[in-house]
Amino acid sequence: MAMPETLPDIKKETRPDSTTSLEPGYLVICWDDPVNLMDYVTHVFQVVFGWHRQKAETHMLEVHETGRSVLLREGMEKAEFYVHQLHKYNLHATLERDAS
């Protein structure tokens, strides 16, 4: 895992991100469970998000090792859509408002 860099004492600029300025962002989170097969979870991430295998596997391993993985940050409607897609495959996924 990459280490954080030590930066000069510069005040962080607030980024005028279009999503944050117009509407709150929502996080699509996938949670670990002891029943879904690792290969299956990777496959679902590939199908639902159109990710290549390596990216899907990285998120699957994060779920497996840390208990959860933030998969996406989106507007409410899109985030809900993705959570619903993950539920169709019986993965444990939730929607959270992004606090950052």
């Binding site: 409410m76 939730t94 408002r97």
Partner: peptide, 20 residues
């Protein structure tokens, strides 16, 4: 079985849960 969220800051959680 599936819960959309447990976050109270999300608008209309019950309605969205029923739709799901």
């Amino acid at each position: 079985h599936h819960r959309l969220n447990q976050d109270r800051r999300i608008p209309d959680p019950n309605g969205n849960q029923q739709l799901l």
